[in-house]
């Protein structure tokens, strides 16, 4: 099997170094896929793969895809956290590929939170 060619890597480097976004580490959105033992067993890798495929297909350079560990809500995995620049992060729970695709289209691309799959909405209320 050939190694990844240095030529290919140089090509990417030349193309990208001109783009401001890469140089400054600037990103418009960050998607974190929770990858604890619980998340992985519940299908987190599939979700990560789906996002990677969409980002690759659309050739988007300003979205960061990353992963984190267990958030302590194992029964609600797979979970992701979507953070748009300048907005509060939103946690989505009990995901599958269809739900994840919708979140990508509506929240990540258009900025509309998908309330149906969000963990919680609104602030804490006090009993009166």
């Amino acid at each position: 099997m050939p190694k990844i060619s240095i030529e290919d890597l140089r090509k990417i480097k030349e193309q990208q170094l001109n783009k401001m976004s890469v140089r400054a580490g600037h990103h418009r959105a960050k998607i974190t896929v929770h990858m604890g033992t619980c998340g992985i067993a519940a299908g987190a890798r599939e979700i990560m793969t789906l996002f990677r495929d969409i980002i690759g297909e659309k050739d988007i350079a300003d979205i960061i895809l990353t992963n984190s560990g267990c958030a302590g809500l194992c029964a609600k995995e797979p979970m992701i956290t979507v953070e748009l620049e300048g907005s509060a992060p939103v946690k989505y729970v009990l995901l599958d590929k269809t739900k994840a695709k919708r979140i990508f289209d509506e929240h990540v691309m258009e900025g509309k939170v998908v309330e149906d799959y969000a963990l919680a909405i609104g602030s804490e209320t006090m009993a009166t």
């Binding site: 240095i6 990417i12 890469v22 350079a61």
Partner: peptide, 12 residues
């Protein structure tokens, strides 16, 4: 080979 380009850049 990548210098400043992060390893998780979509093209990489």
């Amino acid at each position: 080979e990548l210098d400043l380009i992060p390893l998780n850049h979509p093209n990489v």
